[in-house]
Amino acid sequence: MAAPIAVHLEFGGGAELLFGGVKDHQVTLPSQSEPWDMKQLLAWIRANMLQERPELFVQGDTVRPGILVLINDADWELMGELTYQLQDQDNVVFISTLHGG
């Protein structure tokens, strides 16, 4: 069994509007048999945190195109995207680019 891990989540660029207008969230992911990866984190966010219009945040098992994801301040495209294995104290940022300029 993997121990529970604490991660810091940040929503910006308008994505916070889907999470009650709150940008910063400190969450604890419960203990499970497999290590947590980004794909599971997204499913967990959808089930536990998303407050409205889930289709504006997730599409299939990934984020909606147009939402940028940074893991520890680096583009998740460099980190394996959905397969990245989360570590305790990781920092994950979601920035929507779908809002007006």
Partner: peptide
């Protein structure tokens, strides 16, 4: 994508509400 990341990494102050 690059505009948003430029603003993010430079910590520019911008407004993003529909």
């Amino acid at each position: 994508k690059e505009i948003v990341l430029y603003a993010y990494f430079k910590k520019l102050d911008y407004f993003s509400t529909e």
